[in-house]
Amino acid sequence: MKILVCIKQVPDMESKFKVDAAGTWYDNADLAWRMNEYDEYAVEQAVQLKEQAGEGDITVLSIGPDKVKEAMKKALAMGCDRGVHVSDDAVSSKEPYQIASIIAAFAGDKGFDVIFTGLQSQDRGSGQVGVLVGELLGLPSVTTVVDFNMEGDSVTAKRELEGGIRAVVKVATPALFTCQLGLNTPRYPTLPNIMKAKKKELLTIPVADLLDVDPRQQTAALFFPEKKGGGLVLEGEVGDLADQLVQILKEKTTVLS
């Protein structure tokens, strides 16, 4: 069984963001980077699928500058077998259709049985790439997956709908799945597996070899939202803060009376 899992490296969302010089994306300097949270579930599901099947070969793919190899190494240490790094220093200016086209161009003749992606990225958050890859490859895609079970070439997946309701669907492979939070519990790579991952194949392909389409949209501007409301911000020593808050709760609410 051939499995592809697509991952993205994103900044830690608690970072202090700045707008870049062009005014169209965040400044990449001074950020801590990690694997997109949704993609961790995708990697874990790929590894679990291989473990359950007792066989399989997992390719992890990521697009971006050299530093995305850090996220790929984590995926390899979690259990992916090989990495494909699509080298692109300008990845942040690529829109979802271009990203999907790059992945589809790579995957087109590889015969993957199962493809996993995250539901969305934490930074751009378009939620489009997985479905677009499926459409471009002519494969069925199942989104917002919170439960995955494969028997033979048939997958039963649960899709998360609003209000915690789940829709149960069946599909035959080859197929693509976009992973929602809570699908599984992503493992932490162990030290021996981190060491082993260093010896795994990590192929680099220049993005120009795979990208053959023009962007369908562009970013006109990136900016900070206007602060609405104007809630009170309290900072200082913990004991003082607790006193201040108790006073506020006494004045503004009835819960302490």
Binding site: Y97, R216, Q217, Q218
Partner: peptide, 28 residues
């Protein structure tokens, strides 16, 4: 083109959140 999670129309173009709504992006 698909523009996801529009929160506002600004000068006739769509505005979407970025980075867990810490930033906004105007998309054409």
């Amino acid at each position: 083109s698909q523009i996801s999670e529009v929160v506002e129309i600004k000068d006739g173009t769509m505005v979407v959140p970025v980075c867990n709504a810490k930033l906004r992006r105007q998309v054409t």
